[in-house]
Design a protein around this nucleic acid. Structure first.
Lengths: 227, 227
DNA sequence: CCTACCGATCGGTAGG
DNA sequence: CCTACCGATCGGTAGG
């Protein structure tokens, strides 16, 4: 809503249609009709159809990448993973439709954009993999398969745009924290030993508070945590 | 390989193309060329393009559904979840391309097939959600959000067709067990209390066996922990 | 942003 | 399984 420019409004409309019907099945006439102009008029704002897809995929890719680069350097793997996931989930839930197009339609980019995109994704996954590795080396994480774990983990958090709605009152950071908690501690209710690892006791208590059903979050929430 | 009928071979070729280019971006002429005939000849095997998509999506949907219905009835939630995930991962890794089309292209089905498909998926997710709920009630699982957990969990396992290759020597049941282990026990290396919950000790030992890196499985692994 | 229009390609049919 | 062909629609351009 409240798009800055006409072009931004057009990209927003394209995002919505690409999300619903897919890039290939969305025609410029579809788009024009929803935008309220004739098909030929679209080309006063854009050069071609693919430019729309490009402008949906790459800014988000860039934002996600930057999000990881801006993480504090002196964290434990557990904390790094949490922060990385919060960054990721915050960004993709901020624009769910854009994220879904980003996740599903990038392959319709022509070369060399497509390869460039895949390289960014690979590098991004690599950063997560390194956090996992760091956690295994430090003894924070068990000796799980790094690659499989990384992909399963990213896949799990990438499901958020499909069900996350801002109107539900959920906060992205809360969702990220909840997912991190599941991924790090598992579903199991086994009693953990009293010896909690370094300095994560406060974090953990806070995590537990945010774990219940949706309706309860406005009460205590996770904000009680850091202070 | 070794397709029973010409029609089956055509569906296999269609699966491969739909997987690589998407349903909408794959033309009947593409398909015909790869299949080695003229476009018009395809219609002696099929009624229309959508029939191909239908025959890719629905049999797999049916198989997945049956997989859950055939689970033994007297299991703990932890065991049920493991069995359900093994069934799921085994089926989708058996035909990775078909699974990817199933996951990504079903939306191009026309009505009423599309709605029928979505209803099956909903019911399928519901069955997983019930296992989670059962686990929470029995105290096996922590009080996590059922819906979010279910979707994140299915999303995590649905990433397998994207990287799983039979030639890698991995076994589907091993992958399923590994993913279950991550989801149930988490990444964390926190020492668990000695009081393991009812009768799962043997299973757990078995799980741990499948946890290390691929090459190292037979050596020591995480099993050093519990004792 | 419009009218008018382009060559290419789409899914599919007729008839053998 | 082929040749021949269909009406519809595609992304995009010319020219105003």
């Amino acid at each position: 809503m409240a798009p800055k420019s006409r072009k931004a409004a057009l990209e927003q409309q394209a995002t919505s249609l690409f999300r619903d019907k897919g890039y290939a099945a969305t025609s410029m006439r579809d788009l024009a009709t929803h935008f309220g102009v004739e098909a030929a008029s679209l080309y006063s704002h854009i050069r071609n159809k693919e430019e729309l897809l490009y402008n949906i995929c790459f800014p988000l890719a860039q934002d996600l990448f930057s999000g990881l680069e801006n993480l504090p350097k002196d964290l434990s793997a557990t904390e790094r993973l949490l922060q990385a996931l919060i960054s990721h989930v915050t960004l993709i839930t901020r624009s769910p439709d854009q994220s879904i197009v980003f996740l599903q339609e990038y392959r319709h980019l022509s070369e060399p954009a497509r390869t460039e995109f895949l390289n960014m994704r690979k590098a991004y996954e690599q950063k997560f993999k390194l956090i996992i590795r760091q956690g295994i080396r430090s003894g924070e994480f068990r000796k799980i398969d790094e690659k499989i774990t990384t992909l399963a983990l990213l896949s799990a958090v990438n499901s958020t745009p499909y069900w996350f709605r801002k109107e539900s009152g959920l906060e992205a950071s809360w969702v990220a924290t909840l997912l991190s908690d599941i991924l790090i501690h598992g579903l199991s209710n086994k009693t953990k030993s009293l010896q909690e690892s370094e300095g994560q006791v406060r974090r953990k208590v806070a995590l537990r508070k945010g774990v219940g059903k949706v309706e309860k979050i406005t009460k205590t929430k996770t904000s009680t945590k850091t202070k």
